[in-house]
Simulated scan of single mutants.
Amino acid sequence: MSLITILLNIFLPPLAVGLKHGIGLTLLISILLTALAWLPGVIHAFMVNK
């Protein structure tokens, strides 16, 4: 995982997930988790961007 991916996972989780997986269910889940609370969105981004 590159430094840019790590920074995107922390500051813009949906963008990091969208760049890796494209538009789909994974991106929607990331957006919802980030909207509900920032930390679950970050955790989800790190999990899907291993």
Rank of each mutant, 00 (worst) to 15 (best):
L28V: 13
T5M: 02
I23D: 13
L39R: 02
S2A: 10
L3A: 15
T34A: 12
W38L: 02
G22T: 14
G41A: 09
L12Y: 08
I29N: 08
P13F: 04
P13M: 01
I4G: 12
L25C: 06
A45F: 08
N9G: 10
L32T: 05
L28T: 10
H44M: 02
T34I: 00
P14V: 04
L12N: 01
G24Y: 15
W38Q: 14
T26F: 07
I29C: 07
L3W: 13
I4D: 15
K20L: 04
A35D: 06
L12C: 02
N9K: 03
K50S: 05
I31D: 11
I10Q: 09
G18S: 12
K20T: 09
L7N: 01
W38H: 13
G41N: 10
L3V: 09
L33G: 00
G18F: 15
A35N: 08
M1E: 11
L12E: 10
L36N: 05
F11K: 06
M47E: 09
I43D: 12
S30M: 01
V42Q: 00
G41M: 05
H21I: 00
T26M: 10
A37E: 14
V48L: 05
L7A: 01
V17P: 04
I6H: 08
K20G: 06
I6V: 07
A16K: 03
H44L: 10
I6P: 01
A45N: 09
I31L: 14
S30K: 05
P40C: 00
L32I: 09
I23M: 09
A37S: 01
K20H: 11
K50A: 12
L28H: 08
L36S: 13
L12W: 09
M47R: 08
W38I: 03
L32Q: 07
L28M: 13
P13H: 01
A37C: 09
A16G: 08
V17T: 08
V17L: 03
F46Y: 13
A37H: 11
H21E: 15
T26G: 12
L3H: 15
G41Q: 04
L25E: 12
S30Q: 09
L27G: 13
L39D: 02
L3S: 14
F46W: 06
S2I: 02
G22E: 14
L39F: 14
N49K: 05
L8A: 00
H44A: 11
L25H: 09
I31R: 04
I10W: 11
L19T: 06
I43K: 06
G41T: 04
T34Q: 09
W38F: 14
M47N: 11
V42R: 02
I43Y: 14
A16P: 03
V17K: 04
L39I: 08
G41V: 06
V48S: 00
H21L: 06
M1T: 05
L36W: 13
K20W: 07
M1P: 01
P14I: 00
A35R: 05
V17Q: 00
G24E: 15
P40A: 03
G22A: 14
I43P: 00
I31H: 09
L3R: 15
K50Y: 07
H21V: 05
V17Y: 01
I29F: 10
L12Q: 02
I23K: 14
T26P: 04
K20M: 06
M47Q: 12
G22S: 13
I29D: 12
L3D: 15
P14S: 06
T34M: 04
V42A: 00
N49D: 14
L19C: 00
K50H: 11
